[in-house]
Simulated scan of single mutants.
Amino acid sequence: MQVQDLDWILVPLGVLVLGIYHVWLLYTLIHYPSRTVIGLNAQTRYQWALYLMNDPLKNGILAVQTIRNNMMASTLLATTAITLSSLIGVFASNDLETQLVYGNRTSITASIKRLSMSLCFLVAFLCNMQSIRYYAQASFLITTPALKGKKDFIEYVAKTLDRGSYAWSLGLRSFYLSIPLVLWIYGPIPMFVCSCLTSLTLYFLDTTTQITQDLHIKSFKRRESEDVEAA
């Protein structure tokens, strides 16, 4: 294989591997949410919101502090993303890439590499800003007294928390996807290898085992039985 062909073959293959994995993850999240960590976390947030809003005067401080911690995490990621994007823009005029790995072509793909990394960090910044927006809204809603029979309002608050968490997950996912793009600086071969390793690592981070699913189901059933006994 010629050196000039590596960028046009290995880089699209690496992007394809990441794309196929995330399409599979989205399909699993929609149809089998309990098989993913994201789906189980959404169910846990709903139970958490349901429990706290049954007595907002007693649990209001705990709810607001928990949401504030999530807002601080989103703020840190947003600041990091916009800082990295700005640094890439500052050094955009400097060709600091070197021929360290076979297949690295600095004269053709340098601008594409910098643009890809900048877009990735900008997406992370926007997603984390959206996360802060939803968390700020949820911090007001979750302290509202939920009257008996207002389960639809509790579901709305849980959906607002889910949107903030999903936006935070997308922002964090952009950081994960930026790792192969950073290694693309050293050539298409490190980028392709990193794309495969990133997909494999994300698979173990995103999926759940049967033991974890059973523990969540048992904890939910135990909580529901305790609520019934208390009522």
Results as ranks from 00 to 15, higher is better:
Tyr51Val: 02
Ser74Ala: 13
Glu229Phe: 12
Arg35Leu: 11
Arg114Met: 07
Arg35Val: 00
Leu16Asn: 08
Leu170Cys: 07
Arg173Ala: 09
Ala78Leu: 06
Cys194Leu: 10
His31Met: 13
Ala158Glu: 10
Glu226Arg: 15
Ser174Tyr: 01
Ser85His: 10
Phe204Thr: 10
Ile38Ser: 12
Ala138Pro: 03
Leu52Gln: 10
Leu100Ser: 08
Asn70His: 12
Lys148Trp: 05
Leu147Ser: 11
Asp7Lys: 02
Leu122Cys: 05
Trp24Ala: 13
Ala138Val: 00
Thr44Gln: 15
Ala167Ser: 15
Asp162Tyr: 10
Ala42Phe: 07
Asp95Phe: 04
Lys218Ser: 08
Tyr46Lys: 15
Asp214His: 14
Ser139Lys: 04
Ala110Arg: 13
Tyr176Ser: 02
Phe121Arg: 09
Ala78Pro: 00
Phe125Asp: 11
Ala124Tyr: 01
Pro56Thr: 03
His216Thr: 06
Lys58Glu: 07
Ser34Met: 09
Asp214Glu: 15
Phe125Cys: 12
Gln213Asp: 06
Ala81Phe: 01
Ala78Asn: 03
Pro33Gln: 03
Leu215Val: 05
Thr44Ile: 15
Cys120Ile: 06
Tyr32Val: 05
Ile82Leu: 11
Leu96Cys: 08
Thr36Cys: 10
Leu10Gly: 01
Leu40Phe: 01
Thr44Cys: 11
Val123Lys: 15
Leu215Asn: 09
Leu205Trp: 05
Ile211Pro: 08
Glu224Ile: 10
Leu177Arg: 04
Met191Val: 00
Val17Leu: 15
Gln4Asp: 14
Thr98Asp: 10
Val182Arg: 00
Asn70Ala: 06
Tyr21Cys: 02
Cys196Leu: 09
Trp184Ala: 06
Thr36Glu: 12
Phe140Met: 11
Asp95Gln: 09
Thr109Ala: 14
Val101Glu: 02
Ser74His: 06
Met53Ile: 07
Pro190Gln: 03
Asp206Gln: 09
Ala158His: 06
Met129Val: 03
Pro188His: 04
Gln65Leu: 07
Leu76His: 03
Ser34Gly: 04
Gly89Tyr: 07
Leu177His: 09
Glu224Asn: 06
Gly39Met: 08
Thr208Cys: 09
Leu50Pro: 02
Lys113Gln: 08
Phe153Glu: 10
Ser116Arg: 00
Val157Ala: 00
Leu52Phe: 11
Phe153His: 08
Thr44Phe: 13
Leu84Gly: 04
Gly171Tyr: 00
Ala158Lys: 05
Ser169Arg: 15
Ala146Ile: 05
Tyr156Leu: 14
Met71Cys: 05
Ile108Asn: 02
Leu126Asp: 05
Leu62His: 06
Ile30Trp: 13
Gln130Pro: 00
Leu202Tyr: 07
Cys127Ile: 01
Leu26Ser: 09
Ile82Pro: 12
Val64Met: 06
Arg223Leu: 14
Lys151Asp: 14
Gln65Lys: 03
Leu62Thr: 02
Arg114His: 03
Arg68Ile: 01
Pro180His: 01
Met72Phe: 12
Thr79Met: 14
Met117Ser: 08
Asp5Ser: 07
Tyr186Gln: 10
Ala78His: 01
Ile20Gly: 02
Ser116Lys: 01
